[in-house]
Simulated scan of single mutants.
Amino acid sequence: MRMAALLAMLAFLIPVTAAAAPVPSSTTLVECANTMSDGEQLNAAIRASLVGVEIVISGRCSIDSTIRLLGDRSYHGMSRTGTVIRQADGANLAALVASDSYLDDTDFTGDPVTLRSLTLEGNREANPRAGDGLVLRSWASVVDPVPVLGANRHGIRVTNPSANGTLLGNTQVNGRISACHVAESGGSGIRVEDPGNAVTDWQLTDNWIASAGAAGISLDNTAGWYVERNHVYDVAAGAIAAERLFGSSVSDNCIEDFAGFGIRASAQGEAASTVAHNRVVGTSGEVSAFVSVRINYGAAAVAVVANTLRDSGTRIGLDYQAATGTTATIASTGNLVTGVTTPRRVSSGVTVTTGI
């Protein structure tokens, strides 16, 4: 009895706190109905969202206006087939989905965005004057996995210039694009547009690029980039163009059924880069070289190792070229080059070693 009385007294003395206020939802759900109002509904939800919110999109969205991605938010589909954002017939949008800094023509990069588990359909047959599928002008952004199908221009474009050509005054670094299937683009599957030196230090990994009208992957600036484990196939205007290597890695890619070039790289002086473990096989037309490295300025250093290049025809396997006034040391070893007329071509100014 004494214990029961003591517990009752303690219960009386302990203050009763007010119920905690409900935590605001960190998720906004947008349900598309495959009607022409889907684009405005989605943009309105994004405009009304707070920083840190996850915008979940479900169903098929038929859009006739560009979806504007505000930074510091994530955009998540139900699944790659459960959420499809498709350009409506005759919309002819400059971009299907784009960073706010691109559309607003600012001279600074947008805040990070994350895009996951949805499909973008450009519907190029019904939009012959349309532009790109996804345009990123936001640093530290993540796209994974997002199929981009049938863009009239480039499938995914990471860009320094804004819509009206305004250039960045700061940098756009530390992003990642992975596990995306980009197919049937009128231009490149993945395009990095950087006339300055702003779009550096990204990761482009584990993607499938097919049936592009231009080079499958085309980077104006590959400084600090990892371009790895991508599968590029059925491209008639080159597979991987990696310009301005500077501490870069172009490795473990699989390239087949291509014309134009396999891996075409150019290297800057002052830094070292790697082109390694790529499989470049199975041409479908005229090819300049399977793997080529040219030097842009100064004294460059590149390791070109353990690549497998195979064909039957009049081709060049490895092509190392230095322009007048430039030099390069290229560690070229362990490469398997078969079925080509010229296994390796080397210009003056290039010193080929086996490394250490």
Rank of each mutant, 00 (worst) to 15 (best):
E54Q: 09
A5T: 11
G285P: 03
M1D: 02
I316N: 03
C61I: 13
T354R: 02
A300H: 02
S101I: 13
L118W: 11
G82Y: 08
V275D: 00
T327P: 07
T109A: 08
G325W: 05
V135N: 08
L168F: 04
I156T: 07
Y226F: 06
D38S: 03
P15W: 09
T200Y: 02
N164Q: 15
P145G: 10
H76G: 01
A88P: 10
P22E: 08
A323F: 13
A301I: 14
G247P: 12
A91N: 05
A163Y: 09
T27Y: 03
A94N: 11
I255C: 01
A21N: 09
L50G: 10
N207F: 13
V287D: 01
R68H: 10
R229D: 05
S141G: 02
M3H: 05
V56T: 07
R137T: 03
S185K: 11
S292I: 15
A21V: 14
S288A: 05
S138H: 01
L93W: 13
Q203R: 09
A272N: 12
S26H: 09
R157S: 09
T28S: 01
V350I: 12
D104L: 15
R86H: 05
T314M: 02
A259P: 03
S138Y: 07
L336P: 05
C254V: 15
S79R: 09
R80I: 11
S62T: 12
A98C: 10
V84C: 08
E31L: 11
A259Y: 03
A48Y: 04
N164H: 15
S185Y: 13
G238N: 04
A4W: 03
R229E: 07
H76S: 07
V148R: 06
A265Y: 04
